[in-house]
C-alpha cells in the first residue's frame, strides 16, 4: 500500500441509507447494499469526511488490538469496497 492511498479521506454520500438491525449496520445507495461486519461498522461510524484511512486504521487498531499494518489493510479494503459501490468517495 502506498503512502498516498493511506492518506485518502473517505467521504460518504449525503444520501446513503443506513439501518441498524439488532446492532448490525446495513448501508445502501442505489442498488449497492452492504451488511457491515462489526469492524466495518466501527469504521463506518467514524467516517466523517475528515479522518484519513490511516487515522481510521489507527482507531481500528486501538479498538481491536490488531497491528497497524493489518488495520490499515482492512480499512483500505472496506473503504475501497464501499467506494466501488458508490457509497463513499475517496478524496
Amino acid at each position: 500500500m502506498d503512502h498516498e492511498s493511506a492518506e485518502a479521506v473517505p467521504v460518504p454520500r449525503l444520501d446513503v441509507r443506513v439501518r441498524n438491525v439488532g446492532g448490525t449496520l446495513t448501508v445502501a445507495w442505489g442498488e449497492s447494499v452492504f451488511e457491515l461486519s462489526e469492524t466495518a461498522g466501527f469504521l463506518w461510524k467514524r467516517v466523517d469526511g475528515r479522518r484519513s484511512l490511516r487515522e481510521l486504521a489507527g482507531l481500528l487498531a486501538g479498538e481491536y488490538a490488531v497491528d497497524p499494518e493489518t488495520a490499515l489493510r482492512d480499512t483500505l479494503e472496506t473503504m475501497t469496497a464501499l467506494a466501488d459501490g458508490g457509497l463513499v468517495r475517496l478524496r
Partner: peptide, 17 residues
C-alpha cells in the same frame, strides 16, 4: 441542509430496529 442530513443519518445509524 447538509448538517441536517448528517443528523438524520446519525439517528438512522444509532436507532436499533
Amino acid at each position: 441542509v447538509e448538517d441536517v442530513v448528517l443528523a438524520c443519518r446519525r439517528i438512522s445509524m444509532e436507532v436499533v430496529i
